[in-house]
């Protein structure tokens, strides 16, 4: 095990992390944990950006990662506020019990 790590190794790690995030969103019922799984997916995408930035010798990927982090922070702030409001109204953060918009 010598030499440099190829780009594909980073991309596969990122893909697996992303899929773990998708699995979390699909199987968990707790809205907070679903949010954490979404963070996991955002981080997987960030890893792809940084890996390509390194291997294409371009800084643009790292700048985009900064923007993704800013949007993620905004998303978490608003999302957690929504969860608090939901918990106040329904006494639950289980996504199966939140069906106000269902037709």
């Amino acid at each position: 095990m010598t030499g440099t790590v190829p780009l594909n190794a980073y991309l596969i790690l990122s893909a697996v992390l992303f899929v773990i995030g998708v699995a979390g969103v699909l199987i968990r019922r707790n809205a907070l944990v679903i949010f954490m799984a979404i963070e996991l997916m955002l981080n997987a995408v960030n890893l792809t950006f940084v890996a390509f930035s390194r291997f294409l010798h371009s800084m643009d990927g790292q700048i985009i990662v900064l923007f993704v982090m800013a949007v993620a922070a905004a998303e978490v702030a608003v999302g957690l506020a929504i969860i608090i409001a939901l918990h106040r109204n329904k006494e639950s953060v289980n996504v199966d019990e939140i069906n106000l918009l269902k037709g």
Partner: peptide, 14 residues
């Protein structure tokens, strides 16, 4: 601007 909107949104919602 996105961060400002997020601050206002979080305050209004919570």
């Amino acid at each position: 601007i996105i961060l400002l909107i997020a601050i206002i949104g979080a305050m209004v919602l919570a």
